[in-house]
Amino acid sequence: MKYKILIIICVILTVLGAVGSILVLNSPPKTEVNIISDGKVIRSLDLSAQEDVEFTVTYKGKSNVVEVRDGKIRVKEADCPDKTCVKTGWLSSSAMPIVCLPNRLVIEFNDNESEVDAVAW
């Protein structure tokens, strides 16, 4: 009996995870993007109005090359060991920010567009 309850809890956790994943994946794409280095927003861009560009973000001597093309953004090159950020590819949903843990870099859609101090650069 005790084990039945525990197994049911396991199943509930799994279902919660699955439902949550689906919800997060289906959240609508946004165009405001924040580039966050070491917890601070260093740059905000509006992808729909942004021209194609490439720039480098450095943190403690480590660098990631960020590319914006056709209204999409990605990390093109990185000198971190695992290259997870590069493999993530183009930023497609707010569920999947581009994260480079070794270089403390996060590129994500801005969830709260009204809060943005639109940084033109």
């Binding site: 396991c10 919660l16 917890g39 569920a95 996060v106």
Partner: peptide, 21 residues
């Protein structure tokens, strides 16, 4: 704690599902 970006929580459902499996 390290990244100070609450949006990381968006990962949690995936990790929950993956953790269970």
């Amino acid at each position: 704690l390290l990244l100070q970006t609450p949006q990381i929580l968006m990962y949690y459902p995936f990790l929950l599902l993956a953790g269970c499996l």
